[in-house]
Computed example of a mutant assay.
Amino acid sequence: MTSVPERCEQVVRAQLAAHAELHPAADQLARTDDLYDHGLTSLASARIMLAVEGELGIEFPERLLGKALFSSIGRLTDACAELVDARSGSVTRGVAS
């Protein structure tokens, strides 16, 4: 069974691959690599946000929305995992905003 963080990272990487022209590709980037340094645009980040929300059944709160959320796969994945956990009533880890 896939854990929530693993599932979230799979979704994030898939949506990055679908909506952003990153160099190198999303599946080759580390969790801490700066996505903007690898080609992420604000338009792509908006598309990714909507796709991730739809696929995981979550909604990013306004307090998280900003460039920092999309700065790395790790930050985006951690935020998604917290929101999925909160939706299901699980104990969550803190998300730095």
Rank of each mutant, 00 (worst) to 15 (best):
residue 90 S to T: 10
residue 92 T to N: 01
residue 80 C to R: 11
residue 14 A to Q: 05
residue 62 E to C: 05
residue 28 Q to W: 01
residue 8 C to D: 13
residue 39 G to F: 01
residue 84 V to E: 00
residue 34 D to H: 08
residue 93 R to Q: 14
residue 81 A to C: 13
residue 31 R to S: 15
residue 50 L to N: 06
residue 3 S to N: 04
residue 30 A to M: 00
residue 3 S to I: 12
residue 79 A to K: 13
residue 59 E to N: 11
residue 65 L to Q: 12
residue 59 E to A: 14
residue 74 G to C: 06
residue 57 G to I: 02
residue 64 L to M: 14
residue 75 R to L: 05
residue 80 C to A: 12
residue 92 T to G: 01
residue 59 E to V: 13
residue 3 S to W: 15
residue 12 V to C: 01
residue 34 D to N: 11
residue 23 H to T: 08
residue 3 S to L: 06
residue 49 M to L: 12
residue 46 A to P: 13
residue 50 L to M: 15
residue 44 A to Q: 02
residue 39 G to W: 06
residue 13 R to Y: 09
residue 56 L to M: 10
residue 61 P to F: 00
residue 24 P to V: 03
residue 94 G to S: 13
residue 48 I to A: 00
residue 41 T to H: 05
residue 8 C to T: 15
residue 79 A to F: 06
residue 67 K to S: 13
residue 70 F to H: 13
residue 30 A to Q: 07
residue 63 R to F: 10
residue 33 D to G: 00
residue 29 L to F: 03
residue 66 G to L: 11
residue 84 V to F: 03
residue 92 T to L: 04
residue 3 S to H: 10
residue 94 G to Y: 04
residue 27 D to Q: 00
residue 51 A to E: 02
residue 44 A to S: 13
residue 21 E to A: 08
residue 1 M to E: 01
residue 87 R to D: 00
residue 68 A to K: 14
residue 93 R to A: 13
residue 95 V to G: 05
residue 6 E to P: 05
residue 87 R to T: 09
residue 9 E to N: 11
residue 89 G to H: 01
residue 78 D to V: 07
residue 4 V to I: 11
residue 37 D to I: 08
residue 58 I to Y: 02
residue 42 S to A: 09
residue 27 D to W: 04
residue 5 P to R: 03
residue 46 A to N: 10
residue 1 M to L: 06
residue 80 C to K: 08
residue 46 A to Y: 03
residue 88 S to W: 14
residue 2 T to I: 14
residue 88 S to T: 15
residue 60 F to K: 09
residue 35 L to I: 06
residue 41 T to A: 01
residue 97 S to G: 11
residue 78 D to Q: 09
residue 63 R to M: 09
residue 13 R to V: 07
residue 80 C to Y: 12
